[in-house]
Design a protein around this nucleic acid. Structure first.
Lengths: 153, 153
DNA sequence: CATGAAAATGCGAAGGG
DNA sequence: CCCTTCGCATTTTCATG
């Protein structure tokens, strides 16, 4: 896996198209980029094999699923060595959708999605702060998400 | 749009499957959930129409595209009313992949992806801090991303 | 990298519980 | 009203040049 793969402009174009719509027909990309559908197929397979493309997923609107509250929480641990066990416990909380090991003010930084402020309060107090390894937390509530996109290939 | 749509267990199962693999055949979901492929089709169309599903995308590995540095930056603006114009300028920076309007210590919170620490330094000093509306920034570098997933339908 | 044919999948109409 | 069966159209996939 992960050989030092060469990505050319065609790969980049295909990738950009697929990052915008994973179900766009190969024939359409072929027409757009002036190659045959089979060539598109080969390139996509190559990028899957080299794990540049790791999968596909539908994009959902969390609000319409009832997730109205989005926030970030900086976590300080009692001891830095508690990192791994803390992460394992965070994985069990469905509300934690992202976690990062960070330098700076916090040991762990997480993104949380909740149905309501009440639920956030419950998750924060009774689930997150109930974790032994957690020493303190700092919460940042997001009111709006004006930019959300992927890296440029 | 967005009528108060009822989501039942079948919808949830289909959604979960599609969030894991947007190209899973309807026939396979049909077998798994004991309904006909056409029913799966109808449910997916319903969720697309109600905008619970807003699209599909391939999942890429940013590291293999050369994006080795991920960080979060808290931004304070000179004045809170500068929010909209600041966001417009942030949109023009390809390295800014997410932005949030937040309560608490910062006005705006962004996620940045860069190819290297050198590029981060350049983006931070010559692009981000060069924005008139920006008063100060605080950077949080992510060394690892042990949790990354979607909300539970 | 292109061609073309075979297999798989998506799609929508029409009918039944 | 929702689900299913069925047939056609599109798309993917692969062998060959």
């Amino acid at each position: 896996m992960t050989q030092p793969l060469r990505i050319d402009d065609l790969d980049r174009d295909i990738l950009k198209a697929l990052m915008h719509d994973a179900r766009i027909p190969y024939a359409e990309m072929a027409k757009r980029f002036n190659v045959s559908p089979a060539t598109v197929h080969v390139r996509v397979e190559k990028m899957r094999a080299s794990e540049i493309i790791t999968g596909t997923e539908v994009v959902v609107n969390p609000k319409l699923l009832g997730y109205d509250v989005c926030c970030f929480i900086g976590i300080n641990l009692n001891a830095a060595r508690d990192y791994h066990s803390a992460i394992e416990k965070l994985k069990e909380l469905d509300e934690v959708v992202e976690a990062y090991y960070t330098t700076g003010a916090y040991n762990i930084f997480v993104k949380l999605m909740c149905h309501s402020i009440e639920e956030l309060q419950y998750v924060l107090i009774d689930k997150l702060q109930a974790i032994d390894e957690v020493q303190s937390t700092e919460t940042l509530i997001s009111l709006q998400n004006p930019i959300s996109r992927n890296v440029k290939p």
